[in-house]
Amino acid sequence: MELFSEYYKKDHVLSRIDARVKLLVALVLLSLVLSYKGFALPVLVTLLCLFLCIRMRIPLRVFVMRFSEPLFIAVVVVLLKLFFSGEDALFSTNIMGLKVVAHTDGLMEGLLIGGRIIGAVSVVAMLGFATPFTEFMAGLSWFRVPKGFIEILMFAYRYIFVLFEDAQVIYQSQKNRLGYSNVRRGLSSFGTLAGSLTIRAFDHSQSTTVAMVQRGYDGGMPMLRHKSFKSSEIFASALFLIVMGVIWRI
């Protein structure tokens, strides 16, 4: 699981900004991108995020992996809209007696959605790269996200890595014993793997509770303390959002 917060760069200016401010800016930017009816804003946001990722020295491989899935979905949506939506014919072709028509308005609609996907993914990816998980959780608690939800998030995040390692060990040993040599055995092995993970999850939860109770756990987990807001960060963020808002209006 190398794709999590480990690419967070402490020394970058974006990383030093308060997580609450980043979260708020990201959410407003996301709303602007989603409600925009053109190409300019998503393209601008994507380029800006790309520039910041390069400045943060995010490895190209990680960047490509993060964007491959949304990019692929964007292409599918564009093609879907091109051939199955709209009225203004761009071209038509005969495939085995079946007339297929592509539409100009469908293409434009598809490109709008595709742009929106890439713009929105850029915003969230940037937020993920620039904010460590614990700060993010503290930010959520400041926004009054229910504490129970944040605690479950923290437990899950902590144990994802443990369970991934467990899953890899089980998978390797199953593979060495030809557990995936045909579909039937593969299905059975996969069921056993998933079942073993569930059993381990139950066992881990018991041992974690015992360990936490011994350290004073009473059902609630403490969060990071919030520092006071810096006026320069708020001013810069507000200015940035105003500029984006103006572009949105144009």
Binding site: F155, Y159, T208
Partner: peptide
């Protein structure tokens, strides 16, 4: 008390 850790682990 072990219910929250259990739910977190099931989420994982």
């Amino acid at each position: 008390l072990s219910f929250k850790p259990l739910v977190g682990l099931m989420a994982a």
